[in-house]
Design a protein around this nucleic acid. Structure first.
Length: 290
DNA sequence: ATCCTATCCTGGCTGC
DNA sequence: TGCAGCCAGGATAGGA
């Protein structure tokens, strides 16, 4: 599902198609897709605004707009689970799940297609309120080991739900949390307060490595939903080590990958490589000596 | 403060 | 083959 690497890919591939284009009109086919302003005003508000930059924050695609050469708000889109943004020739935009079309000045259209209707679009003058509660970008320099360790220690939450919390770190979802915890050898139920400096450093590195590698592969596609704006599947599903691998052998120790549920989320991990206790080695030694 | 559950949706899968 | 029922999942709200 679209998480940080997929949304980053969408923004990168959309940018050259959209930058410089002015919105001429459009149509909302599913009213609830529009979060702001009122549906009746959405298209009219956008008409005459020109796209000047396409970027990503957390799992939001952000299109900066200008009017008469001056900054004029942002078109923001959250793909949620099945949303797809594309720029295509008008005649092609005929999907049964088309929710929004915006006509551009080169007679192409920016289309938002969304099977499950969870995705949302906003036009906002400023991003402050929409992005107010978002945590740090995990690939930013400001996201360093010290701060990450301190943030983990200041909470008492299980690692998996904490990493899924967008106010703690922005952009991770179910797939990349499972992959990061495996690479850091941490159990999804481990308490954040008990993550020591070395484990925090491993998790920090694992998150960055997983996200960077996934962006390089243009995200993950293991069902029919996520495709790049060029219509191609991503490639990172070939590098999954635990996600969607229930019963298959761990790539490190060959023990079968297990699937459980943590806060209703399917959770994949290796019982042997991700022990429940941080220092199982140490406690085993202590038990032997006593 | 943290956890748990329901909600939003639909296509695709399972099992009878 | 047909069909009912379940499941996936990001974010959020409300209750425990």
């Amino acid at each position: 599902m679209p998480e940080l690497p997929e949304v980053e890919t969408v923004a990168r591939l959309l940018a050259p198609e959209l930058v410089g284009r002015t919105i001429r009109g459009g149509e909302v086919l599913w009213a609830r897709t529009i979060a702001a302003p009122r549906v009746a005003d959405f298209v009219q508000t956008l008409v005459g605004r020109r796209c000047v930059r396409v970027w990503r924050r957390a799992k939001f695609v952000v299109i900066d707009l200008e009017r008469r050469g001056k900054p004029a708000g942002h078109l923001v889109c959250h793909l949620r689970m099945t949303g797809r943004l594309q720029v295509e020739r008008a005649s092609r935009a005929t999907s049964p799940h088309l929710r929004v079309r915006l006509v551009l000045d080169d007679r192409r259209e920016l289309t938002f297609d969304d099977v499950r209707k969870f995705g949302r679009m906003w036009f906002v003058e400023t991003l402050d309120e929409l992005f107010r509660d978002l945590g740090p970008e995990p690939l930013d320099a400001a996201f360093d080991v010290e701060r990450f360790h301190a943030a983990l220690e200041s909470r008492k939450r299980r690692l998996k739900p904490l990493l899924l919390d967008q106010s703690f770190v922005a952009g991770l979802g179910n797939i990349y949390v499972d992959e990061s915890l495996f690479r850091a050898r941490l159990h999804p139920l481990c308490s954040s307060a008990r993550v020591d400096r070395a484990a925090a450093a491993r998790l920090h590195a694992a998150i960055r490595e997983v996200l960077t590698a996934a962006i390089a592969r243009e995200g993950s596609s293991f069902d029919t939903f996520y495709r790049t704006p060029e219509g191609k599947p991503g490639g990172f599903q070939d590098e999954f080590r635990v996600y969607d691998r229930e019963g298959e052998p761990c790539v490190v120790c060959r023990a079968p990958i297990v699937k459980t549920f943590v806060g209703q989320r399917g959770t994949h991990f290796c019982r042997r490589c991700q022990p429940r206790s941080l220092n199982r080695g140490a406690s085993a030694r202590a038990a032997r000596e006593s």
